[in-house]
């Protein structure tokens, strides 16, 4: 199988959510009075769905630039956690490395995590690169299409954004099935629920991520011991 074909197959699950969210974002930008060129620029150099949508509000309200900086950092701080998992994997990518490090999103991170072994003739390093490249191209195309088509889309697509949730659920199921320890998933679930009730729906994300990080660190020695025992 050609590497590009393999990469396209792997990103298929995230295409519905990229298309819909991208189109929705493009429509928002056009309705707020921004030229499709701004939509294009944002999708090329920001490339972060939820932040781009929040930016429409920041732009139209004329938010001060420091607020834009702080909001951008905190909305995307979860990427720090994704990066931790890709350090080893992106080694040896040479010139492609900066592009790859900068295009890990919620969706592409999940695709990379759930890719599994590559078939014969497909280089894993090339596959990672094409997954990231094709995903961003999909996002760019969808958002620009939305910006150009704003106001003339005839179908009611309400609810199709559920495809993003559905995708993350499938990744959870796959990880649950193949991992020997369910502690990370349970730590994530408990932290998410606890901080959702403590802090509310808009503020629980980072505390929940941080709490799972701490719990996993506390369990580290146990987990490594278990792993050694499993191997022996």
């Amino acid at each position: 199988m050609r590497t590009q074909t393999f990469a396209l197959k792997k990103i298929l699950p995230i295409v519905p959510s990229y298309l819909f969210v991208g189109i929705a974002y493009g429509i928002l930008m056009s309705e707020a009075g921004f030229s499709p060129l701004w939509t294009l620029l944002s999708s090329v150099i920001v490339y972060a769905g939820s932040l781009q949508i929040i930016m429409v509000t920041l732009l139209t309200s004329g938010a001060p630039l420091y607020l834009v900086a702080v909001t951008s950092f905190f909305v995307n701080a979860r990427h720090i956690f994704y990066g931790l998992g890709m350090i080893e994997r992106f080694r040896g990518q040479k010139l492609r490395f900066p592009y790859m490090a900068l295009t890990v999103t919620d969706e592409t991170y999940s695709v990379l995590c759930s890719m599994g072994p590559c078939p014969e003739g497909v280089s894993p390093k090339d596959a990672d690169f094409y997954v990231l490249l094709f995903s961003q191209l999909t996002w760019i195309a969808a958002s620009v299409a939305g910006a150009l088509l704003a106001g003339s889309l005839p179908v009611d697509l309400t609810g199709i954004d559920f495809s993003a949730t559905a995708f993350f659920v499938t990744v959870c199921v796959d990880q649950w099935r193949k991992s020997s320890s369910h502690l990370p998933a349970i730590a994530g679930a408990v932290s998410a629920v606890a901080f959702y009730f403590l802090l509310g729906p808009e503020d629980f994300l980072l505390p929940a991520l941080s709490a799972s990080l701490i719990v996993l660190l506390l369990l580290k020695d146990r987990a490594l011991l278990q792993k050694r025992r499993d191997r022996a």
Partner: peptide
């Protein structure tokens, strides 16, 4: 890097 993804995915669903 190995153990965080499973926790992150569940939190993303939430």
């Amino acid at each position: 890097g190995e153990s965080l993804p499973a926790a992150i995915m569940v939190i993303l669903v939430a």
